[in-house]
Design a protein around this nucleic acid. Structure first.
Lengths: 252, 252
DNA sequence: CGTTCCATTGAGATGTGTCAATTCAAGTGG
DNA sequence: CCACTTGAATTGACACATCTCAATGGAACG
């Protein structure tokens, strides 16, 4: 079929402006979920001054590569990115997907060099936050220090969620969990929780979830047959959230 | 057989004193790999003052439980612990093993409540580091702040390693990797890299690696048949490090 | 309009899980 | 000191979920 499901929030008439980088933390619509969260107006201004906004990345452009010198962490402003490591035998392992308001690059802190690569899944704008400045500010602003500790900690708990998923759950459960995760993250950004466009390919999904493309595809077909999801290539509509949760088999 | 392999470092005549908690960071033999790393003597003193040392945990005692209010992170002084989450359907997922000099509990920062439980695998002594004090000190001591950021970042990269392992590697590769990891961590603590006693059960190993006990056991048998390891219950001797690395299939 | 990339679907192969039995080590109580 | 119990580890036989290989279909793009 040629028809697409209707535009899912970020597309459509907003397309011309979501990547705009003439914005500051104070007026950014993401400041309720991003780094500035928990900061006073004055403090936000200071944070804002160290942040560098550059022109958007095009699809499949790298934000940084494994081994690059670590200098900054990044907040996604628009679009989506994936982080991945290359294993010693040359294969890829996708370690995370990042949506607007989310921070990436923190795995580079430990060695002063990025432990993974980050690549745009679609046109994406990011805010670059030089880490040395962030450290300096953190020492002066307890709330910022605290918040950044929390962000890193959250990354740890999320990785542990994924570990559990990979270690204990079936293909059905893994895919269902990912769909729920994306749905929830959309909701946090005031977008539709039931209808969205996946920015990543089936290969990426499979790679992230430790499954082959074929298995992912079969799971989608099965879910469609069960009237849980409506799948049209990358457009997803969740028809039965309860059913999806049951399939994911998590208390989420 | 009744004979054991010879004592592997931490056992034997040291046994009476490794759990001793009348020690400070300045004279702790772990201060080259633990939190004080990268601190000046004066700063170490200050760190030392906030650290609480209590009497050792007995085997299978909890250090903290999932959901407990988060107040401190912990450095292992002696013995070993495991961290694990309980999934919604009641099963366990082991998320990490912690040896002397390693820090655990950081996953509790994000929600002010521990995201996992921690349990002693054998008699174990820990240093408790109240997080609020650590935050305060970090704001004053840039090196400490930096170091703690690095520790959290390392936890992230290690989790990502595990994700890759679970997602891409066979049972053989997973078990081999764990053996190498333990061997390396032993070496860092100036213990034998080729001979040690596993503090955890086969169930824990399987759980951590996303395998059943039976599979773990079969892998050990296979490795023994290939003259890579000598396995006598929990006593492990690595006979062929190169072979083990090859089996792990990682550039480690 | 062909080329290319991505997704889907089918059929068969396989690694690991499941179930069950056995061995071994350590502790407990008679 | 010897049965007895208990929990951990090992081993075997079989089942099954997912992978592999192969073919087809569809969308995007030059």
């Amino acid at each position: 079929m040629t028809m697409r499901l209707a535009d899912s929030g970020e597309g459509g008439e907003l397309k011309r402006c979501v990547h705009d980088y003439q914005v500051n933390c104070g007026n950014c619509r993401l400041n309720g979920i991003c780094l500035p969260l928990a900061l006073e107006t004055d403090d936000i201004k200071q944070l804002d001054e160290i942040i560098q906004r550059s022109k958007p990345l095009q699809k499949s452009q790298h934000l940084y590569r494994e081994g690059d010198r670590f200098q900054s962490v990044y907040a996604v402003r628009s679009g989506a990115l994936k982080a991945y490591k290359t294993t010693d035998d040359g294969r890829e392992q996708v370690t995370g997907f990042y949506f607007p308001g989310e921070i990436l690059g923190m795995d580079g802190i430990s060695n002063n060099s990025h432990a993974s690569s980050a690549k745009a899944l679609e046109t994406a704008a990011v805010c670059e936050i030089p880490f040395s400045s962030l450290e300096r500010l953190s020492a002066m602003m307890p709330n910022l220090q605290r918040h950044f500790f929390q962000l890193m900690s959250r990354e740890i708990t999320e990785d542990q969620q994924l570990i559990t998923l990979l270690s204990k759950n079936s293909a059905d459960e893994r895919v269902a969990s990912l769909m729920l995760s994306i749905s929830n993250r959309n909701a946090k950004r005031k977008l539709s929780a039931t209808q969205f466009r996946l920015p990543m390919s089936r290969v990426d999904i499979g790679n992230y979830l430790g499954l082959t493309v074929e298995t992912v595809s079969r799971v989608f077909s099965r879910m469609q047959k069960m009237d849980i999801l409506l799948v049209d290539n990358k457009e997803i509509r969740i028809l039965d959230t309860e059913g999806l949760k049951k399939m994911a088999n998590l208390g989420t």
